[in-house]
Amino acid sequence: MEQARRITLPFTDEIVRGLRAGDRLLLSGTLYVARDAAHKRMFEALDRGDPLPFDISGATIYFMGPSPARPGRPMGAGGPTTASRMDPYSPRLVALGLKAMIGKGTRSAAVREALREHNAVFLGGIGGAGALLSKSVESSEVVAYDDLGPEALRRLTVKDLPVTVIDDATGRDLYEEGRARYRTIGRAHTH
């Protein structure tokens, strides 16, 4: 298997254009953490015509809600949460310049279309490896919505955070391709 490629954030259009489903990356730099409730708040801000709490242009959002930090540590466990819950929100943010999202699980057709249209990517974090992934976090601070507790909007500085490209900007999807490669039976009929 090819070596993971080191990337310094923020993503540029050129780097995103070259990414393909299945590529393994190690991300370093600044990204933002938001999940369900923070996305809802960001949408309310946009609807009111207010600015977002951070510059979304070129940004990466990590769908995650960390466990509390023990004293002296930047963060507790932190791995990706299921991305489909953010599907209603993501296309609008991608249109505003969001370049990458980190999460897990299948995205909607509308999200994948937005990725193609605006040259952006969906990246898979390692679901259930919250302890290991926390070792890639150098600093963590709440940027907004502190009252949401584990769902607050955070800024993280990461070093070599491992991710895999799930949906690239050409429309390819690792979940579809991976499953097709190893599937030995037809689709089940019931349900």
Partner: peptide
């Protein structure tokens, strides 16, 4: 990486998963 995570979590007292 999941096996590494399982070894790291109890040693450093970080939950296996944030959920």
């Amino acid at each position: 990486k999941l096996l590494e995570n399982a070894e790291l979590a109890p040693r450093e007292m970080i939950p296996l998963c944030q959920d």
